[in-house]
Design a protein around this nucleic acid. Structure first.
Lengths: 329, 329
DNA sequence: CTGAAAGCGCTAACAT
DNA sequence: ATGTTAGCGCTTTCAG
């Protein structure tokens, strides 16, 4: 039937008929059938979200924000975890394309994300979060990893530390690399030795590796852990050794985490606007869905906060943001 | 075309034709169009998952397990957070039904889940996790909350505590209530006073409320926090007061959490098999999807572990499980 | 045993 | 300004 004439306003009708149709719609609670629309060639009112791991607190917060934003706009969210494996990510992408999702949100894994080229060719919008997509130009939302790492390193330097060790996991991950670069820049600027140690999760027992690293750098007086997983590991090891913190060794970390305010001393960290990352990414996809006239590809970099607690050597707490300098909590 | 004759094996064909068709399918990489199948009245190869909050670490772990299990079986997962609001949950359910999801996984909020009655009438399988559905009979997976709480309380009693305060948030939530009951049973069995204090998240400043509660019970020597959110709050407050733990006050909590092993003393907790909960729930839905001949409704209760650390007063660590008594780590 | 056709619900194009 | 129809891809039924 010619019901959709009114619904879509695609054709002019007499006000009287319009009223009647609207009334009927109300009464029956009519909702257009998605499957039929898809069959007709339209996209589903569904967003696809692919992240490495849905159980990771960071990513879960992100996913939650995406889902919420999508829902408010009338979209459902198909979520899937890639496990950090690029082949899984590719497969998931294909399946979601088969399902005619309207847009993609991705925290990409791997180094050649060519499978998204196909998506792009179908004119389905993609937004990558946290890390940019390699080999494919898309909208990207990241955090100012480099600046934040440099600032945090600078803060440690301002405490008088000259031997600061940067503990990282995997240089090939965009965020890790950026943070290492930020740290290195700050150290070089202060004419201090750049010392980076990689503890890859693949290297069997992480804690063993960490132990040997800490053994080998006895002159170091401060540590900068590149993410919260490493921070927790480091913390545990320092506790085991009963190292005086921050007197003997100071610690700063990237990513805020629950335990950071429960342990003594409390841990100084860079805090990322995680939920905002997800929210804005979803908004960007939704905007593209409504209207293609956004200057493409847009690359948005979100600011971070230096949350200064005690582990860096500071007595009282204050808070520094990327945008606005120093704030007091 | 009559392509599906082979795919579904619904009709007998000559081996020769079969080979040809199969070859063609391989070659083109043919995949049946989901939208068309749905339009024909079949269910989508999609599971719907509704939880109160996707950013909660507990629920995120659960969701991740569900998604993974579903993916392995060729199903996608539509995930949504209800925010604990029943009206949102209802709306989400309706939308997912419109999308023809094949099955539901729910961690229900609210007290009259009648909207799932409609789902059930459509013969779409529902499994509720963590909490049973009210007013609707469905497959349910829970954890032995009551037993675990009783055992943990018993453990505190065995340390010689006689004044044990149970700190809970909301009696109307199934899990909380079960745990309170478990605690109460153990106390009564030992002829000790049952003392429960409710700190509802609605009551404005949780920490203020908590302070007054702790002020009012000076004779208490042990605390049992009913979930990890409360545990963290309690922990923070005890730290602020510089209370000697476990000497002056011992602490046990429900739900393991990251910080539990980072703080000193480490926190004794009940650990739930979170990922298993999600995995088995998904498997149950998938089983129903394959075959309706499972004794309905099945109610599965998963065992928990008592992870004995230091905050209860134990020096060394050991571990107790619901099924097998005591184990050493 | 195989081919043809109807029809799921929708919308765009076409006819009135 | 409104009514009719074709066709999206699938499966089931009916004819052959």
């Amino acid at each position: 039937m010619s019901v959709s004439r009114v619904v879509h306003g695609t054709r002019r009708v007499t006000p009287e008929v319009e009223r009647k149709v609207r009334a009927a719609i109300e009464k029956v609670g009519y909702e257009p059938n998605e499957a039929a629309r898809i069959l007709k060639g339209y996209r589903a009112r569904v967003l696809g979200l692919i992240v490495p791991d849905l159980s990771d607190p960071f990513l879960a917060t992100c996913a939650n924000a995406v889902q919420e934003t999508a829902r408010e706009a009338g979209y459902m969210t198909l979520m899937a975890a890639s496990g950090g494996r690029e082949d899984v990510e590719r497969k998931l992408t294909e399946i979601m394309m088969q399902r005619h999702v309207a847009g993609f949100l991705v925290i990409p894994s791997g180094s050649r994300n060519d499978h998204f080229a196909i998506v792009k060719k179908s004119r389905v919008p993609i937004v990558s979060l946290d890390r940019p997509l390699k080999r494919v130009e898309t909208d990207t939302l990241t955090v100012d990893n480099r600046l934040a790492a440099a600032r945090m390193t600078g803060h440690l330097i301002s405490h008088g530390h000259r031997q600061i060790l940067c503990i990282a996991d995997d240089k090939s991950v965009f965020t890790s690399n950026e943070r290492i670069v930020g740290y290195s820049q700050a150290m070089r600027r202060a004419e201090l030795p750049v010392q980076v140690r990689l503890i890859r999760p693949i290297d069997g027992r992480i804690s063993e590796k960490l132990k040997s690293v800490l053994d080998s750098v006895s002159s170091v007086t401060a540590l900068f852990a590149i993410n919260n997983v490493l921070a927790v590991r480091v913390l545990r090891e320092l506790q085991r050794r009963e190292v005086q913190m921050p007197e003997r060794i100071a610690l700063a970390a990237f990513d805020d985490f629950d335990a950071a305010t429960l342990v003594r001393p409390t841990i100084t960290v860079v805090r990322q606007p995680i939920a905002e990352l997800g929210k804005r990414a979803a908004e960007l996809v939704l905007a593209r869905l409504r209207n293609d006239a956004i200057p493409s590809p847009s690359r948005i970099v979100l600011g971070t906060e230096l949350v200064i607690r005690q582990s860096c050597g500071c007595g009282r707490r204050y808070l520094e943001t990327s945008e606005s300098g120093a704030k007091t909590v």
